[in-house]
Structure formats: structure tokens, C-alpha cells
Simulated assay, not measured.
Amino acid sequence: MTRSELCTIRAARPADVPTLVDLVESAYRGERSQAGWTHEADLLDGQRTDVDMVRAAVTHPEGAVLVAEDRTKIVACCQLERRSGHAYFGMFAVSPVLQGGGLGRALLAEAERFATEEWGVGEMRMTVIVQRHDLIAWYERRGYIRTGELTPFPYGDERFGLPKRSDLAFEILTKKLG
């Protein structure tokens, strides 16, 4: 567990799963998400995640979900998964009303530290919807590089949302750590 001036960061527990689902949904989809700048509400309807997906992330033997708590509740989270030679970063969510205040930057830095010091990996990778230009620029300011490597959006799989456009794709971003 680490402490930043904004919150305490710790590993998620199975009991946190319902809270994490609500946090992720509030940050990405629907009307609540539009209080922040990182939402996908203009690109996708439907769910962003569900209890089964979050539970799988929390209990994954080669993964961790980090949560940031203020004095009363979980206000941010991210998923890490140890893969061959790198860590995958995903399910990054900050409460919409707290976005833009440095909490996301602090949690990302802690995720990078965790991947380096706890797992000994030298690279972080993530996928971001290519149409999310502001978010990609935010990651680039933190040292992430666009690879140009695209993967298709999982159209037809409602577990990942209901697309509002037909050209969605993910791009892999990467950063050398350490």
C-alpha cells in the first residue's frame, strides 16, 4: 500500500468488485461520465464492464487491480496484467468529478512503479480507442508512444459496449519503464 498526497493506493480485494464496476461505468459511459473528460459516451453506449470481468481481473493470478481511496471510498482504479516481457495496463478509471486534478497521473505512476519493482518488467502496454485523441495525447505527455498497431473493436460483443460508429479500433501504446 502506498500513500500519495491525494489518496491511499492499494490492491483491490474481491469485496471491492461492485464498487469498481460502478466506478468504471461512471467514468466511461452514460450521463455520469460526461462530468469528466475521459468518457467514451460519444463513441459507445451500453456497458464498459461487468461483475464477472472485474472479478476476473481482481483475482487473476498474473494480475493486479490497483485502487486509489480517499478517506471514504474508492475514487480510481487500474488493472495490470503480467504478460510475456511486459505489463498490460487497462481498466483505468478516475471518478469523473475528480478528473483533471492529478489523481490519474499519480495512479499511472504507481502502476508503472509496481510493474517495474514488483514484477521486474521493463515495458508497459495498453490499448486505446484511436478516436480518443485527447486521451492518447495525455498518455503521450507521460511518455507513451503510439505504435500504429491496430486491433479491431469487438463489434457484436455487447460486453464491451454498443458502438455509435462503425470505424472504432484500438491502437497499442507502449512505454519503456525503469
Rank of each mutant, 00 (worst) to 15 (best):
E62I: 03
D22Q: 14
R142F: 07
L108H: 03
H60S: 13
R3I: 05
G85P: 08
L162D: 13
I129W: 01
A169Q: 12
G178M: 07
E149V: 14
F160V: 05
P61H: 14
E31L: 07
A68Y: 00
F153H: 00
R125V: 02
L107P: 04
L80C: 11
A27C: 06
R3C: 05
T127W: 07
E140D: 15
K164Q: 10
G178V: 11
P61M: 07
H86F: 15
Q34R: 15
E123R: 12
W138C: 10
E123M: 07
R55E: 12
R29S: 03
G46Q: 02
V75H: 08
W119N: 03
R10K: 14
Q99K: 09
R113I: 03
C77W: 03
Y155C: 09
D167H: 09
G36K: 01
L150F: 14
P96H: 07
S4I: 07
A27T: 05
A68F: 02
V121T: 07
V65F: 01
D157V: 08
R141Q: 13
E118T: 15
A12G: 09
P152S: 13
G36M: 02
L6P: 02
R125M: 06
F92M: 05
R48T: 00
R10Y: 06
Q47M: 09
L23A: 04
G85F: 13
P61Q: 11
G36N: 01
D157H: 11
P14K: 07
T38W: 08
E158P: 05
M53G: 05
A64D: 03
T147L: 09
G30T: 01
L80R: 06
A169D: 12
V17Q: 02
G101L: 10
A41F: 01
W37Y: 06
H39C: 04
V51A: 15
M1Y: 09
A35Q: 12
A76G: 14
R146E: 11
R32S: 14
L66D: 01
G85Y: 10
Y144D: 04
F153A: 01
A11S: 15
M53E: 11
V121S: 01
E69I: 06
W138Q: 12
E81M: 14
V65Y: 03
Q79F: 10
Q79H: 14
L150A: 12
R165D: 09
L135S: 09
G90V: 04
R165V: 08
E118N: 11
L150R: 15
V94S: 00
W138I: 11
T151S: 12
P163N: 15
L168E: 04
E149F: 07
V94W: 00
Q34G: 06
T72A: 13
T151Q: 08
V121R: 00
S95N: 11
E31M: 05
V97M: 10
E25L: 10
H133G: 03
G148F: 10
L66H: 04
